[in-house]
Nucleic acid binder design. Structure first.
Length: 1012
RNA sequence: GCUCAAGUGGCGGAAUUGGUAGACGCGCUGGAUUCAAAAUCCAGUACUUUCGGGUGUGUGGGUUCGAUUCCCACCUUGAGUACCA
């Protein structure tokens, strides 16, 4: 009986679905285990072979945990709001919901074919109103919360209001906007509602504020910092500019320290933790206030080096700094204004790319040194960023490279306060020096001086110790259609949240998905988009009409992509709940994710925001846990192997009666990368290989042209690489020309000749040509996408699953190469054969391959193979080393086949071992063995040491550390006996060549090393 | 520039606490089967050699009886980050 994988896989996929084999229960005596894959966005392109890599690994682990007796939660769903569906809607007019639905169905079908053990009854979609109802609910909770630094957690805004009513805000220690006015309880109580609300907005964890945002004109929306890569948008690569807008923001900065601390207790890859640490960017130092004499102004600066305060020789402000206009002297006004204008014109990207150029202007103003009272010139320079610290620095050129370069460039003095040489470079180390020329700090080290300087600053009231974070509050508004609507309406310009019992606020219908003519977001086009605060419903207000009393306009922005994905892990715990985002019992039982697998690209986006929301929900008592993901593994990207062929384009340069002309030849030539490695991309054809040059010359000379040259000056070529769709390329990198003719996009290639390194084959005179391979990211635009569907069709899902694991370590990036898949596939065929008519029966001529497993006891050898395999597979699971387990299975099957093993005693447990990797074949053989229930929860076989105990050991005998031969000796031999046996051996004599050994190292059970 | 990770046959990779380097698979070579091919099976396959041996885990040093593994310096590649005061 042949291994009909297509039938078997379809059969068991249907069985699992019908029997709800993988449905997880929220109540169980078993210990829980939660395995989650990062939320996929259902793109129109479908899955390629890179996507399932992580899903396969997590599925193997989930299935293994079920065998180990755990109650496993392993869900899947879709992060289904997002830009691509909306861009598609703008182009085609099709509602994003329809596109999204189509894409999800395709994903579901593709995922289904790979045989994942997902509990589909818990599927969630962020664009589903049943889901985003709770995203809106969390937003409302954030709005009604503030961060109390005294208790170090978020609290209900009511506690803040009661403090205000009782004692004003003077003693409140909160994370809030800067420059909040101080007021007493009397003042608070006398404020009107509007004034009170305005103040509260400065404290809320989500707040409305005019912020400078990253505006992307091409996408028509703002972007968060982590959505910008190298100054352009992550999606689409469009330019981004700075713009001031009123936006919802999330006060994530309140959690900066806790987000940092939390990294200590989670098991995540170090690079990921590092990038979060850098993103949060904590620096400890001091804020120092510099007075400007004879004025009311002072300039606060942030510095990490208060110990260098006596090294200050100038100050630099960001060109955007508020004080620039106010302090510039009339003489310098013109120069300063010109500089400010010039920097404003430069895009953020230009400023970032151009780090080397030093520029700046003197304002003419001076500040006063807090201790020495010396005047300090104030400059402006674009190396100081308005968005970090206070937008101003105290420049210490002897201790900071940038200040040093600036001072050198503008001839500003560089006083040295270190006992170190600074004639060439600044001295920026924090160790190995003593401070000099610094009054009361003389002779101190970095640490001592820092403490003392802060103390002194505090005494004179001109500074204080301070910690700064690079992390900014997260902008939460998007001028987009396809996202969660805010549960917010505006009463006289002030935001009010809708009572949670009236949620969800559904996304309204619009005619077009573009901004309105007057620049409002797409929701501005919605007809029915006002809130009736009396009847609590969304109502329609006719265009141009004034809303009736009690009816107010709703928020026109939508939430960003990360809103829905910041809390989805908790929804899976109780996905159908209509009354809560998840029940208390479910949250208590499942806690958080034990194993999270996904790509590393979410390091500073999703993974930071979901930690933030988890901590917030924890503070407000909705969650027990304060970290979402206990262990995280980044799977390496699977790269594509693009197929590249070069087209040589030829042209003749010459002269006719009109002067110099060039004409492009209609003849083009295909050539492989290897043959043009050292050639420039264009030049004279004399550079081309001899074998190619002559026929080309002949060809060009014979070309008929209406335009005749009087004189030909030269023949030139240029090389244009072109990617070929990898589905057209076979295992030997050959492309059949017939296939090319069927595709319109390859017309240039179809009419070409081909040079193979030996001969030039004229157009129509060859059938195949060879392409070069180049490893690149798998993407539609590079024509190198391999879909899992075709592989499932040709080899089966079990082969795909095992092969993806067999490619190499999970965390490593690796190119997708089909060459090895036959090896894995034939392994499964061998495995199948092991359960069918044994070789010995075949010899007796019984003919056909029937299912056959005997009840007779297994050989010692076979049992040893089995237990060796159990041991290794369990160890590998612990290390998430799935590739080595596949090898182990191959070894086991090779050994058992050689041993002609047919015993149920071995073959029954072997199925459980392999079932996480190849579940379909395992289920099929399991049922053939007579089991009536699914293999999914069969207990994992117990490893027994006794089968691996050996009586002898093949000792490697080495001389000076080099292994020469092995010697079979009993295990229980003493050190001395081993040495005696080895020294008496004639091979030892041979290798010693008459020398007397100086020393013999014997490690019983391991090795013998003879020195000398 | 800084931070991190990784360099092992023709290729993907293995060697879990320092103890037989190259498991397993691909590819390649030879053979069996076949009219032939596919499929399957068997044998071989790091390099080199005067067939005794010699050399080999990016390079150079060190520790050790013994180093792919530990230490130092350097080279290369990849990823992240970038005027953060």
């Amino acid at each position: 009986m042949k291994y009909h994988f297509n039938d078997i896989e379809a059969k068991w996929q249907k069985f699992w679905k019908e029997n709800q084999t993988f449905k997880a229960e929220n109540q169980s005596d078993k210990e829980k285990y939660y395995v989650l894959d990062m939320f996929p966005y259902p793109s129109g392109a479908g899955l390629h072979v890179g996507h399932p890599l992580g899903y396969i690994a997590s599925d193997i682990y989930a299935r293994y945990k079920r065998h180990k007796g755990f109650n496993v939660l392993h869900p899947m769903g879709y992060d289904s709001f997002g830009l691509p569906a909306e861009q598609y809607a703008i182009q085609t007019g099709q509602h994003p919901a329809i596109t999204t639905e189509t894409n999800i169905n395709r994903y579901r079908e593709q995922l289904g074919r790979i045989g994942f053990s997902f509990d589909w009854s818990r599927e969630v979609r962020t664009s589903n109103p049943d889901y985003y109802k709770w995203t809106q609910w969390i937003f409302i909770e954030l709005f009604h919360s503030w961060y109390n630094k005294n208790t170090d957690k978020a609290e209900s805004i009511d506690t803040l209001i009661s403090i205000f009513t009782r004692e004003g805000n003077e003693l409140v220690n909160a994370v809030c906007d800067e420059n909040v006015m101080l007021f007493t309880s009397e003042m608070w109580n006398s404020f009107d509602e509007e004034q009170q609300q305005k103040i509260l907005l400065q404290y809320r964890l989500t707040y409305l504020a005019e912020t400078e945002v990253n505006w992307c004109p091409a996408l028509g929306t703002v972007l968060a910092n982590d959505e910008i890569v190298n100054g352009v948008s992550e999606r689409g690569g469009h330019p981004v500019i700075r713009k001031k807008m009123t936006q919802w923001s999330m006060r994530i900065t309140a959690y900066a320290q806790r987000l940092l601390d939390g990294l200590q207790k989670i098991d995540w890859p170090q690079p990921l933790k590092d990038s979060q640490t850098n993103w949060i960017g904590k620096s400890v130092g001091a804020e120092v206030k510099f007075q400007i004499p004879n004025s009311k102004f002072q300039i606060p600066v942030f510095t990490t080096r208060p110990d260098t305060i006596f090294g200050v020789s100038f100050m630099t402000l960001a060109p955007e700094h508020d004080l620039v206009k106010k302090i510039t002297t009339p003489e310098q006004k013109e120069a300063v204004e010109a500089y400010v204008e010039q920097t404003a014109k430069r895009s953020e990207r230009e400023r970032m790319a151009d780090v080397k150029t030093i520029s700046g202007v003197f304002t003419g103003a001076y500040a006063e040194h807090p201790f020495s009272k010396e005047p300090i010139p104030i400059w402006i320079g674009d190396y100081v960023l308005a968005s970090y610290g206070t937008g101003a620095v105290m420049a210490v050129p002897c201790g900071d490279e940038r200040d040093y370069a600036f001072a050198k460039h503008f001839n500003i003095p560089i006083p040295n306060i270190f006992d170190q040489d600074i004639s060439e470079n600044a001295f920026s180390e924090k160790e190995g020096f003593k401070i000099v020329n610094s009054d009361f700090l003389n002779g101190l080290s970095y640490k001592e001086a820092t403490t003392k300087a802060i103390e002194a600053l505090e005494n004179i009231g001109q500074g204080t110790g301070k910690t700064n974070y690079r992390l900014r509050d997260a902008v939460f508004s998007r001028q987009r259609y396809w996202g969660e609507p805010f549960p917010v309406y505006y009463v006289n310009g002030l935001p009010k949240t809708i009572d949670p019992e009236h949620l969800p606020i559904r996304l309204p219908e619009v005619e077009k998905y573009l901004p309105t003519e007057d620049g409002q977001p797409p929701l501005g086009r919605a007809k029915k988009w006002h809130w009736d605060a009396t009847n609590n419903e969304v109502v329609e207000v006719k265009e141009g009409e004034k809303p009736p009393s009690g009816v107010w306009g709703l928020e026109l922005n939508t939430m960003p992509g990360w809103a829905g994905s910041s809390w989805y892990l908790f929804r899976y715990m109780d996905a159908q709940n209509e009354n809560e985002f998840a029940s208390k019992e479910a949250l208590e039982y499942w806690q958080n994710v034990d194993l999270y697998i996904g790509g590393s690209e979410h390091a500073t986006g999703h993974l930071l925001y979901s930690r933030f929301w988890t901590k917030f929900l924890h503070d407000r008592g909705f969650l027990h846990v304060d970290e979402p993901f206990k262990k995280l593994i980044n799977q390496g990207m699977i790269l594509g192997e693009s197929a590249i062929i070069n087209v040589i384009i030829l042209k003749t340069l010459g002269r006719n009666s009109f002067g110099d002309e060039e004409r492009v030849s209609p003849n083009t030539i295909l050539i492989n990368n290897e043959l043009i490695k050292d050639l420039p991309t264009n030049g004279s054809i004399n550079l081309l290989p001899e074998k190619l040059k002559h026929p080309i010359k002949a060809m060009l000379k014979n070309e008929e042209h209406t335009l005749k040259f009087i004189e030909i000056t030269s023949f030139e070529y240029s090389i244009v690489p072109q990617r070929i769709d990898v589905s057209l390329v076979d295992l030997h990198n050959l492309v059949n020309l017939k296939e090319i003719h069927n595709r319109r996009m390859y017309t240039e290639i179809a009419k070409s000749s081909y040079y193979d390194g030996e001969n030039l084959w004229i157009k129509g005179d060859f059938d195949v040509f060879k392409v070069s391979r180049e490893v690149e990211k798998m993407s539609k635009s590079k024509y190198n996408v391999v879909s899992p569907d075709a592989i499932c069709e040709q080899y089966g899902a079990d082969t795909l699953r095992m092969y993806e694991m067999f490619l190499g370590p999970l965390e490593q990036a690796k190119p997708w190469n089909m060459a090895g898949i036959t090896g894995v596939h034939s392994f499964l065929k061998k495995f199948w054969k092991l359960y069918h008519t044994s070789p010995s029966l075949l010899e007796r001529g019984s003919g056909g391959e029937e299912f056959y497993v005997s009840n007779s006891p297994a050989s010692i050898k076979s049992l040893k193979t089995l237990h060796k395999t159990i041991k290794k597979v369990e160890e590998d699971m612990g290390n998430f080393s799935f590739n080595t387990s596949v090898s182990t299975f191959m070894i086991a099957v090779n050994e058992l086949t050689a041993d002609q093993c047919t015993s149920r005693e071995v073959l029954d447990p072997l199925l459980i071992l392999i079932s996480p990797y190849a579940p379909h074949i395992a289920e099929e053989l399991w049922s053939k063995l007579g089991h009536t229930t699914s293999i999914a929860t069969a207990p994992f076989p117990q490893f027994e040491e006794k089968y691996l105990v050996e009586s002898t050991k093949a000792y490697p005998i080495s001389f000076n550390g080099k292994m020469r031969f092995t010697l079979e000796l009993p295990m229980d031999l003493s050190k001395q006996a081993i040495e005696r046996e080895v020294m008496a051996n004639e091979k030892t004599m041979h290798y010693l060549e008459g020398r007397i050994p100086k020393k013999v190292i014997v490690v019983p059970g391991k090795i013998v090393n003879i020195v000398g």
